[in-house]
Design a protein around this nucleic acid. Structure first.
Lengths: 199, 199
DNA sequence: GTCTATACTTAGATAGAC
DNA sequence: GTCTATCTAAGTATAGAC
C-alpha cells in the first residue's frame, strides 16, 4: 500500500476506480487522483492517454469475461432451466470479488455507458445478454422480460434498503425475483397475443 | 421561434432540455446553449443561478405532479388491483406529452439523480413510488418487485429494439410485464420463507 | 429589468526539461 | 518516469451599458 514499489499504473487504476465509484466519473478530477497519489496530473498522462482511457483499462478485463459468458450462454439450452443457469452465472460474475467493484462503478456512472467508448462496449454486452436470454422469444415482451431479469441483479444493490442485508442475501433475492421473470419468457404465447390485440 | 419575443427564459429551458437529453448534461456546455440562442453565457446567468438551476426549473413541475400521484396512491387499496391502478397512472405521467421529455432527460442522465439537488428530489419520489407499491409487503422481495415494475416502464424506452414499435405499444407492453411483477407482491409469502431459509 | 464585457478558477490535455 | 509550464475550454461571477 504505502510501498514505493513500481506499479504506479495500477495504483492509478485503483484510486481512480475508487473515486469514480464514490463521487462519480465527471465529478472526479485528475488533479484529485494525482494528489492522492502524490504525483502531478502530467504523470497520469504518461500512463494513460486520457481520462476515459483509465476507465477502459479496468473495464476491458470485465468485457472479456462477459464475452466468454455470452459465448457459453449461446450453447446452453434455450429453455427456462438454461436461462436460469445463464443468469446465475451472470450474477456470480456481477457479485464476484473481482468484478463487483467495476460493476458498481457502472451502476454509479450509468451515463458512461452512453458517452464513453468503454461504456458503449459494456452496454453492448448487456444487450447481448438480454438477447441470448430472450432468444426463445425475441418479441418485445421477451426482450423486456430478459432486460428486467438482468436489472433485478443490478437493482438489488440499491433497491434493497437496509444495511442489515448481506451481499449473499441480495444475490439470492435478486435471482429469485429474476427467475420469475425468466420463466415467463416464451411461456404461453397466449398472453402476448391478447396483449397485442388489446391495444 | 425566430421571434424577438420576450421569453428568453423559457427558450433557454427548451434548448437546454433538448441538448441535455440528446448529448448529456455534462457534455453540454453553457456556451453551446447560449450560442444556439444568440446570446452570451452571462445572459443565462441572469435567468438562472447555475447550470443545475436550469435543470431544477424544468424538473420542479414534474416533482409536484409526482407528489400528487404519490399522495393519491397512498389512498388506493393496498391490493393487486390498487397497485395496477397506481402504476397505470404513473405510466400515463411517464409517457404523457408534458412529462415525457423530462423523464427522457433523466433516463439519459441517470447520474444526475445522484449528483444534482433536483435529481435527488426525483430519485426520492421514485423511491416513494416503490415504497407505496410494496406497502402490502415491505420485505426486500416486495421492494425489489416494486422497483422492477417501475423500471419496466422506464426500460421500455430503450430495452425494446426496433423503431417499428409505437409509443402506445411500448406503454402497453411495459404495463403488461409490470403487472406480472406487481401481482406477485405479497402474494403467497411462502416463497419468501423458502427463499430466506434456502440461503 | 435585460443583457454584454470581462475576468476568475478549474478542468482535461500537451510539450519539453530533468 | 516524472515535473514545470502552458494551452484551451469549461462553469462561475460581477460591473456596468441600455
Amino acid at each position: 500500500m504505502t510501498g514505493s514499489t513500481g506499479d504506479t499504473r495500477s495504483r492509478i487504476q485503483a484510486v481512480a476506480l475508487e473515486l469514480f465509484t464514490e463521487q462519480g466519473y465527471e465529478k472526479t478530477s485528475l488533479r484529485e487522483i494525482a494528489e492522492r497519489l502524490g504525483v502531478t496530473k502530467a504523470a497520469l498522462y504518461y500512463h494513460f492517454k486520457s481520462k476515459d482511457d483509465i476507465v477502459t483499462s479496468f473495464v476491458s478485463d470485465r468485457i472479456e469475461r462477459l464475452d466468454g459468458l455470452i459465448e457459453w450462454a449461446g450453447h446452453q439450452p434455450a429453455d427456462a432451466a438454461g436461462r436460469r443457469a445463464i443468469l446465475q452465472r451472470y450474477s456470480e460474475e456481477f457479485f464476484g470479488d473481482t468484478g463487483h467493484t467495476v460493476m458498481q462503478f457502472f451502476e454509479q456512472n450509468r451515463t458512461v455507458l452512453t458517452h464513453l467508448s468503454s461504456g458503449q462496449m459494456m452496454r453492448d454486452r448487456l444487450l447481448q445478454m438480454a438477447a441470448v436470454l430472450s432468444r426463445a422469444d425475441p418479441s418485445p415482451a421477451g426482450q423486456l422480460r430478459a432486460t428486467l431479469a438482468i436489472f433485478a441483479v443490478h437493482g438489488s444493490t440499491f433497491a434493497l434498503r437496509g444495511p442489515d442485508i448481506t451481499v449473499e442475501q441480495r444475490k439470492q433475492l435478486a435471482l429469485d425475483v429474476a427467475y420469475e421473470m425468466l420463466d415467463r419468457i416464451g411461456a404461453s404465447g397466449a398472453d402476448e397475443d391478447r396483449t397485442a390485440l388489446r391495444s
